[in-house]
Design a protein around this nucleic acid. Structure first.
Length: 786
DNA sequence: GCTGGACATTTTTTT
DNA sequence: AATGTCCAGC
């Protein structure tokens, strides 16, 4: 064999590179670096998912062929010639090429790709499938929670749970905590359930067990109480055969830590681990990932420290900042070329984010050109803000864009209502993501609880939720009694109810109780023969839920419609799965969020929080409510760490825009039932002036501009926050009433149509002769009676 | 055990 | 503003 090894490898690499000709050099580097720890710092819009998908494709097809210089002794001169012949061609037989370079490709089932959200997981799976075909189905791709669930279903019996465990969502968990508090006779004012759950969650994240917690905090009275709550909470979960969201991850880690054979099994299975959105991982998740990749060291994490926005739920930015320390000789690859936005938008984003101190530092650039300026719009109230957005959306559609090219982003869901109203007025189709979620509606949670009880009658929380819903004469006292007996005998409540006649304490109520368990038994039988949708119909009748909703009038109608939608979800699930089971459906629902059905193709404007928008992109983006106290949120004002997180959120929001970015803020707005007046957000001021077109509709009316400290240093720069606080508003004299004629400095003469008393002000609706009807706050408008 | 009304509380982001 | 929680009275 007279093959020139060097030139053989050269040619091999050229051919491999040509397969990814659309990728830039950095992206190619990420694709070919298959073995060993790799950190990919991927800026917003830098083609992160494309890189992940192509990297996996390269792994499955060519393994480490690019970097491995080994040449098999079976490589022939003919092979060598074949390589030369296809060096500059894109049209060749891939199998022949693979055979010629004799690569060891990687099995799809040895690849584990973890994402953070279902949406990201679905996108990843979809793109892998379209690139690789059905081979992609064998890749282990999913969210942290879904991956861990698979492991738990197989192994959890080692921890004393049954493998048919159910999953408690946050609401179920809070209810459990409340039960713990009442069992322990603890005051829920001193120990608020949500805060308790937070503390427990943090402990689980740090892998502190209830007994560890008590041992570590034996001195502190308060923490001792919390430790007891934690202990009882965990006991209750276990006796309900339930796990909460945190357990899903931390029980998996526990399995890996305590059972070496389990660890070894999964280390051998998941030889190549990829983690998306690594900046959002918390400590247990980090632990999970490191445990799995400890042996192979083949771990590739992708993330952007500037887009870390989930610290509030335990994500630690340190995971990404410390990756290089954790994994020595890690290869760090920066993807800084942005393919999404204009230079103006990127400059704005860079201008904002550079005010943060804790960051790895990178600078996005693009070849897309400068683009249009950013529009900063300041207006007198939230109605003109909504009107502005509606107008601009309409305008964009008139100019040939689709409604779906527009997205409205806000800090909190409460802000959507007003925009919504104006969209309805302007006949703009829209879709709201998040907010009150479908699976959080009461009727849906109720029906799901019934289904859960059919699946697992020992689930205490779900049982208590529906035992008297609709009313069937089993009140709190009876439930308490059943519970007490169950506790004393260490038997499940459900079993006590079944034999209610045997216990004096509840024998009076035995008929109601046994009716209930009989109903569940019947439904459990039906579940064996009927399909899921039929089961639901039977449930609605037997539980009397249908009649219960029917009796609620109009509201009940809506709820029945929601149940119908649940039914179609059941049907959809049954069609999509080869072996549909009740348990399978319930599990799918547990991990489902509204974000997941976003990828539909309807032409509607998308409205959502900035958090939900991560990973998405739109031609036109409207970031509304860019005001101090709203964004950044007043809750984060005190802490620099939290302000930095808010700033990262601003960075995420701004970088969603491809072509035009609108940022709006309002001099005053109604929120949470009161009128507040806020300064423009500091983030707005961090955007370099020359990138921004300012439209200010408050100058005329109120005499100040959106950038007070630059334009008119009347208000001292150190005064941030609510203007109303630093500059007390004098109460206007309201000496007029409905139908009086009044005059306004700018709008001229008009007739008062209505007056609505607000918390500390009066909303006056005036029909002006020249400008039509306006709504005005009396304290601001200085209306004079004529 | 149930109902309705007063009262309070909460309004960040999510698997 | 909107929803949940508590409590008195039936």
């Amino acid at each position: 064999m007279q093959i020139n090894q060097e030139s053989f490898n050269e040619i091999k690499r050229t051919i491999l590179k040509n397969r990814f000709t659309k990728m830039n050099e950095m992206q190619k580097k990420a694709i070919f670096k298959v073995n060993g720890p790799v950190l990919i710092l991927a800026g917003a819009g830098s083609g992160k998912t494309t890189v992940l998908v192509n990297r996996i494709a390269n792994m499955l097809n060519f393994g480490d062929a690019y970097h491995n210089n080994y040449i098999s002794e079976y490589v022939t001169n003919e092979d060598n010639d074949y390589l030369k012949s296809i060096e500059n061609s894109n049209d060749y037989d891939v199998e022949r090429f693979k055979d010629a370079i004799k690569v060891n490709s990687i099995n799809p089932w040895n690849v584990l790709a973890i994402t953070f959200t279902n949406k990201a997981a679905n996108e990843l799976k979809g793109r892998l499938q379209s690139l690789l075909g059905d081979v992609a189905l064998n890749i282990n791709a999913g969210t942290f929670h879904s991956v861990c669930l698979k492991i738990l279903r197989r192994e959890i019996t080692r921890l004393g749970y049954s493998s048919s465990f159910t999953i408690y969502d946050t609401d179920d968990s809070v209810r459990t905590i409340k039960d713990c508090l009442s069992d322990l006779a603890t005051d829920d004012k001193m120990f608020p359930p949500k805060a308790m759950l937070g503390e427990i969650s943090r402990s689980k994240d740090a892998m502190i067990s209830p007994s560890d917690y008590l041992a570590q905090n034996s001195e502190d009275f308060r923490k001792k109480v919390i430790g007891n709550i934690y202990t009882l909470y965990q006991k209750k979960l276990k006796s309900s055969n339930a796990v909460d969201f945190d357990d899903i991850i931390c029980l998996t880690v526990k399995l890996l830590v305590e059972f070496p054979d389990v660890l070894e099994h999964y280390q051998n299975l998941f030889k190549y681990v990829l983690v998306d959105e690594y900046q959002d991982t918390n400590h247990v998740q980090y632990k999970l990932v490191t445990l799995l990749s400890q042996r192979s060291k083949n771990i590739c994490v992708v993330g952007d420290d500037d887009q870390s926005i989930y610290k509030f739920r335990g994500a630690t930015i340190e995971n990404i900042l410390n990756f290089e320390k954790e994994f020595e000789d890690a290869t760090v690859i920066r993807l800084e070329q942005n393919y999404r936005s204009t230079q103006n938008i990127l400059d704005a984003a860079n201008g904002i984010i550079k005010h943060n101190t804790e960051r790895k530092g990178k600078n996005l650039w693009t070849a897309n050109g400068v683009g249009e300026k950013i529009t900063a719009y300041r207006c007198p109230d939230e109605n003109s803000e909504a009107q502005f957005v509606a107008n601009k959306v309409t305008e964009s559609v008139e100019n040939g864009l689709k409604f779906s090219d527009n997205a409205v982003l806000y800090r909190m869901n409460a802000q959507s209502a007003n925009i919504e109203r104006y969209f309805v007025k302007s006949a703009i189709p829209y879709r709201i993501v998040g907010g009150t979620k479908f699976y959080e509606r009461k009727e849906i949670k109720d029906i799901l609880s019934y289904l859960h009880i059919i699946d697992n009658p020992y689930d205490i929380i779900r049982l208590k939720r529906i035992i008297n819903e609709p009313k069937r004469g089993i009140g709190d006292t009876t439930v308490k009694n059943v519970e007490a007996i169950a506790d004393k005998l260490s038997l499940p409540m459900y079993e006590i109810m079944k034999s209610a006649n045997d216990y004096d304490l509840i024998s009076k109520k035995s008929s109601s109780l046994i009716d209930f368990t009989n109903m569940i038994e019947e439904l459990t039988e039906l579940n064996k023969t009927l399909c899921l949708a039929e089961l639901l119909e039977n449930l609605m009748e037997k539980a009397n839920y249908h009649a219960y909703l029917k009796a609620q009038g109009k509201e009940g109608e809506v709820r029945l419609e929601n149940i119908e939608e649940l039914k179609s979800n059941l049907i959809k699930y049954s069609e999509e799965n080869e072996n549909p089971t009740l348990q399978g459906f319930l599990e799918e629902v547990s991990l489902y969020t509204d974000l997941d059905n976003l990828n539909d193709t309807e032409d509607k404007v998308t409205m959502m929080t900035m958090h939900s928008a991560k990973g998405l992109e739109f031609k036109n983006v409207y970031v509304v409510g860019m005001e101090e106290n709203i964004f950044p949120s007043f809750l984060s004002a005190a802490s620099d760490v939290e302000l930095q997180e808010e700033r990262r959120l601003a960075y995420v929001a701004v970088t969603r825009a491809k072509e035009h970015l609108y940022i709006t803020n309002s001099a005053q707005r109604m929120l949470f039932g009161r009128t507040s007046r806020n300064m423009p957000s500091r983030f707005l001021k961090e955007i370099p002036d020359e990138l921004v077109d300012i439209i200010d509709e408050t100058v005329k009316a109120y005499g100040y501009s959106p950038r007070p400290e630059k334009a008119k240093p009347v208000y001292k720069p150190e005064i941030e926050g609510t203007v109303g606080v630093s500059r007390p508003v004098e109460k206007a004299v309201v000496d007029f009433g409905v139908n009086d004629t009044v005059s306004h400095k700018i709008f001229g003469k008009g007739k008062v149509k209505s007056m609505t008393k607000m918390s500390n002000d009066t909303l006056v609706e005036v029909s002006f002769d020249k400008v039509g009807t306006k709504k005005i706050m009396a304290n601001f408008a200085k209306l004079e009676k004529i």
